[in-house]
Amino acid sequence: MITLTINGKAHSVDAEEAMPLLWVLRDILNFTGTKYGCGVGACGACTVLVDGAAVRSCSYPAVLAQGKAITTIEGLADGGTLHKVQQAWIDAQAPQCGFCQSGQIMAAVALLKEKPQPTDEDIDAAMTNICRCGAYAEIRAAIHAAAKG
């Protein structure tokens, strides 16, 4: 059994050592807001925060997250109040199909934690997640708006 602290709550799961965090979240604990996109860490759809840093959970064994604080998209809002990045995403009407957006939002939260006023170059360097719909302009605008707000 491993114990994971997800969005402030402890969960005990019976998962083998090699099992990536993504599948523990999605298929065992039903945190389905975190998405499977590629399984090889190439697209970022599965991005979650582990101790505040962006981690591609498809390529991160769940056992490594023991004793750390895991935040998923479901844990970002504070009660009924959306996180400022989520609100900025709505204001910019950023999502199209939306499937990559949990990962994009988590990556943006991690970026803003490290660099509260990111430049375009900072955004280029940190935001490497794929958006197949091509909503990059709206995502960039939303990050800048969240930095201001």
Partner: peptide
């Protein structure tokens, strides 16, 4: 869009 920013949209 709201359900696509808080993880609640069910794909």
């Amino acid at each position: 869009i709201p359900a696509k920013v808080d993880g609640s949209a069910v794909y």
